[in-house]
């Protein structure tokens, strides 16, 4: 049943992807300035040579010249859009316009794992810290522990990640010399600051969610019953309260992972991490049409998968919800 549901959802996502790719393609061509526009202007025929190499010498969506010549099929096929789509269907994203000797697929395959690694560490950090913090706050409701941890949680949500990154670098690298101020070499010390800077916001989100959820569950009848029966506080919290409070937290895991992995631009930039997030911005700035298309597709797939996962998770965690 679940499998059929997932397959159905995936089938629906294909037209969504197609629409997205088409819109991205069109928007890129509408924006002024092309990939080969630069301050040192190129002689027209050199630009023409370049455009020929990247299929930009053809009309964008329809080829009126071919139509007037009576080639009605080529009206659609001899266009940039058709060439790009044909390549996409074959899984070829083409060469990057900026990094001329590299394929977009290679760029993504090299940078995506780094972003995933960073993102997963950050999410893991967020869960490991956020859940206990939420439980503790709820359990010590309205005490100084609750107030302090919620103060940090709210700060974490409101402070922009670049500010957190800069503060962390200032103290841990420059003042105390404990951790490197950037880079992504192998070694534990290189991961700490970026992971904390990226994870602090999810920590805050999870802690607040967990706190609210635990507070909700604590007031349930079955907890009162358990207490009345004389169950000790720690097993009660762990076995009955926490388990039942996890539902909302688990359901946000999917979108959180997608958001953290693709939304780490600032952190990757500040810590000089060779991830994919920076291409989201730089590829647009460079009008690197193929690379923009590549990262957009990756992002879309991430979101689609995350959404499906969440819906499936709902039914797994809460049997009352049925997939249809």
């Amino acid at each position: 049943m679940t499998l059929v549901y997932i397959l159905k959802r995936l089938a629906i996502s294909i037209p969504v992807l197609w629409l997205l790719v088409t819109l991205t393609f069109l928007f890129l061509r509408i924006v002024p300035g092309g990939p080969f526009d630069q301050d040192k202007a190129l002689p027209p025929h050199i630009k023409a040579n370049l455009e020929k190499e990247f299929d930009l010498d053809k009309p964008v969506v329809w080829n009126t010249k071919k139509w007037s010549e009576g080639h009605y099929i080529q009206f659609f096929t001899e266009t940039q859009y058709f060439y790009a789509m044909k390549k996409l269907v074959h899984g070829d994203l083409g060469p990057s316009f900026k990094y001329r000797t590299r394929r977009v697929t290679d760029i993504i395959l090299e940078s995506l794992p780094v972003s995933i690694e960073l993102g997963l560490y950050a999410v893991l950090f967020a869960f490991l810290l956020g859940i206990p913090l939420g439980i503790l706050s709820a359990h010590r409701h309205n005490t100084w522990i609750d107030h302090t941890s919620m103060f940090f949680a709210i700060s974490g949500v409101t402070l922009p990640s670049f500010l957190i990154a800069v503060i962390l670098i200032y103290f841990f690298s420059i003042q105390w010399g404990m951790l490197p101020a950037g880079l992504w070499d192998s070694g534990f010390e290189y991961k700490v600051l970026p992971v904390v800077a990226l994870g602090i916001r999810p920590v805050a989100i999870i802690a607040r969610l967990m706190r609210a959820s635990v507070l909700d569950v604590i007031q349930a009848d079955y907890i009162r019953t358990a207490r009345a029966k004389g169950l000790a506080e720690f097993p009660l919290m762990m076995k009955h309260v926490v388990k039942n409070s996890l539902i909302p937290v688990i359901t946000i895991a999917g979108p959180l992972v997608a958001a953290v992995i693709t939304g780490s631009f600032v952190i990757e930039h500040v810590f000089a991490i060779p991830g994919m997030a920076k291409h989201f911005i730089q590829a647009v700035t460079n009008r690197d049409y193929t690379l923009v298309m590549g990262v957009t597709i990756v992002y879309a797939v991430f979101l689609i998968v995350a959404n499906i996962t969440v819906d499936v998770m709902y039914s797994v965690v809460d049997p009352r919800i049925k997939l249809s």
Partner: peptide
């Protein structure tokens, strides 16, 4: 040869002798 684009990060790395 490192590719640290952010100038203030490069400066921090320089100050910490990286």
């Amino acid at each position: 040869c490192l590719m640290v684009t952010e100038q203030s990060t490069a400066l921090s790395l320089y100050q910490t002798k990286k």
